[in-house]
Amino acid sequence: MTTDHAPAFVAKRTGLVRFISTYGQEVVIAGAIIALFVLVSMVSPRFLSANNLNTIISGNAYIAVAAIGMSMIIITGHIDVSVGALIGVLATISGTLATAGYPVWIAWTLPILIGVGINAIVGALVAYGRIPSIVVTLGMLSILRGGLVSITGGAWINDLPPDFHLAQQRLLDIPIPIWFMVVLTVGAFLWMRHTAFGRSLFAIGGNIEAARASGIPVERRVVQVFMIHGAFAGLATVLFATQLRIIQSTVPPNLELTIITAAVIGGVSILGGTGTVIGSTLAAILFSAIGSAMIFINVSPYWLRAVIGVLILITVLIDMARRVREQRSAKR
């Protein structure tokens, strides 16, 4: 592959240095998660109970799954602010199908197809309509959110059939959401790293003209990556819709920002071209661990968002500082 965007100087370094320079952000987040678990469990050992770990990891697995698709979008140099509204709409469709008596596998899979379809339109408007993705998805956010509430009136969906609740089931004694999260993260990571299609996303985000010149069908790729992102939003919906006894047919507030934040803290550069989905998944786990830790060490949960805000800023500032240092050493 000649489309590899990585600067040539990285290749000359030794293994460990190269690993840290490529996966610095992932290592930092993994370290932060471990430090958090050690510190909080010293104050309150119950933090490490199987029950609490399960809540932390599987309860927010849908955010990690959605962040995989978002990472691909951002790596390609785009953004999607409508994904929270999309998940809200798909969850309502899923719940409505299930209560209307359709088999549960239809209630699980049809929303995924609809997610792919809606995002195919978004991708086409971005790639062929030449409208910036933030504008298209801002419009789509209004359309989905307004459409959902005006059709359902924000009613709750009760009486879901018992076998609908996929996210509450276990396979080999491990909760289904964790399977989803791990398999999809590792799969997407390997796919993005080792296939020509996956590499082309980095190429498009790194330098779109160079990507075009090297023969990548840029427009078609952008539509395809939006469709894949739609599929991940659909998979996230399956977990989100089936984890509670009820589905509230409104858009979960701020969900899109949480998903974008997970991708960005995970090391996906908002400028496009770099990042991995391992980082975004770790970041999603970190968020949820922080939320849980605050309860265990008796900090008012009202401060949760302020803590996450500080965390975003610190991560971004460290990232910028590292980038500046790398640019300097590249010049030398």
């Binding site: 953004i79 920002l257 974008i260 934040t261 960005v264 908002i270 400028l271 008012s300 009202y302 401060w303 949760l304 968002r305 302020a306 803590v307 996450i308 805000g309 500080v310 975003i312 800023l313 971004v316 500032l317 910028m320 500082a321 500046v324």
Partner: peptide, 27 residues
């Protein structure tokens, strides 16, 4: 000063400022 892209910088302060508001007011 830190050359952080505006989208990310204000995404961070979006969470931070709202977080401070929520923390102070406690609903």
């Amino acid at each position: 000063r830190f050359r952080v892209p505006p989208l990310i910088a204000t995404l961070g302060t979006l969470a931070l400022y709202r977080g401070i508001a929520e923390g102070i007011s406690e609903a």
